[in-house]
Design a protein around this nucleic acid. Structure first.
Lengths: 202, 202
DNA sequence: GATATTACCGGACAATTGTCCGCATGTCAA
DNA sequence: TTGACATGCGGACAATTGTCCGGTAATATC
């Protein structure tokens, strides 16, 4: 063969994968690009790709890491800046921001969420940094509201989980594409239905 | 070949498919059986199988039709029998029954819900009889509550949709398997978080 | 009754995901 | 330098989903 592939620096390979995948995904859309294509474009074997990333969801998650981080930082900053406004208001603000992020990165997120098979001690969405960040954020807000006696009686852990997971990509897509709801309306309705009723009147 | 396959009665083929699939699914589990296996076991070509059912989800949906029907009938009967009790109470009862059904048929339901790609005018879960039954049921209950001035201000259509979709199979599995919540607790928490706060106090 | 038209069957095929194993490369010890 | 061992690369392979098309049976037409 023209050039026997030398053992590459592992870091080099990782960078190449990320760079190539980002390029391909941007060009053809996340859905349409197969792992085989990514491997071929990156000049590595499929086995090599799968050794780094268990599946496409994993790969996307890694490519989204930066986006998630900045989103999380934005939310943190926002909540810090607004820390004197009512909890409920901050909660609504967070949801609005999340919806915009969700909409913006929809293609990626819908690929990431795909994996089924919820077995114990396995990497799932529920162990991922994005879930954990949202969990912490919502949990803190609910706890704060509870301490201030602004919250109805709730199982806070359950509620936190439910608020995060109740918005599936399919459902979002359905509301947006089929029902034609603008994002602002979706966010507003979600707050109206799922967030605000958790707070005591007054 | 020993016996040239005669054109079979279409109805005969359909029955054979359903019977064979039910058998195979029961024996090996819904997840583990491929469409290829079903076709082979039913002595038909894969193309024939796919002409009847666009995918495994479709096939499962058809096999579950009876189960859905009896479930729907049970709920209808229940709501009819209890039509004098408070709306909120009936709503909670419905959710408890649904949870039990969900748990009972979990393997099937998690296969059925899989399809992504929410394009307009395409068969999705949101067009399926189960979704539509739940939609009608929830919608009626919410409307009744609204007429009786027992409901907070809501976008009823949105709320109906959200209540149906907020419980994904993955989330249910996570709560049950990983968090170890019994079904009754899941149902109770769901009512506490998502149903009861929609009703005006007193 | 012969021929054209239609319906629809069934298996071959393509595409994708994910796994596995032979083999090249690098490291260490003698 | 040489041999033993470890690392990990990469393509071949298996499994599955879904599509397509050649061909045959049923039906309509004359």
């Amino acid at each position: 063969m023209p050039a026997t592939r030398k053992k590459k620096d592992a870091l080099e390979v990782s960078k190449t994968i990320l760079h190539t995948a980002k390029q391909l995904f941007a060009e053809h859309g996340v859905e349409s690009v197969s792992m085989h294509q990514v491997a071929k474009a990156a000049n590595i074997g499929q086995g090599t790709l799968y050794r780094r990333y268990a599946n496409k969801s994993d790969l996307c998650m890694d490519l989204m890491k930066d986006n998630f981080s900045t989103f999380a930082a934005n939310i943190d900053k926002l909540l810090h800046d607004q820390k004197d406004s009512p909890v409920q208001e901050r909660f609504n603000l967070t949801v609005f921001h999340l919806m915009r992020f969700f909409d913006d990165k929809f293609d990626w997120i819908s690929v990431i969420q795909i994996p089924r098979h919820c077995e114990p001690d396995q990497a799932t969405f529920f162990n991922s940094p994005p879930y954990m960040f949202l969990y912490d954020t919502y949990h803190s807000l609910l706890l704060e509201a509870q301490e201030k006696h602004e919250l109805i009686e709730l199982d806070i852990e359950f509620t936190t989980h439910l608020l995060i997971t109740s918005f599936s990509p399919e459902s979002f897509m359905y509301l947006k594409k089929i029902k034609g709801y603008p994002i602002e309306k979706i966010a507003a309705c979600f707050c109206q239905t799922s967030i605000n009723p958790l707070f005591l009147p007054k």
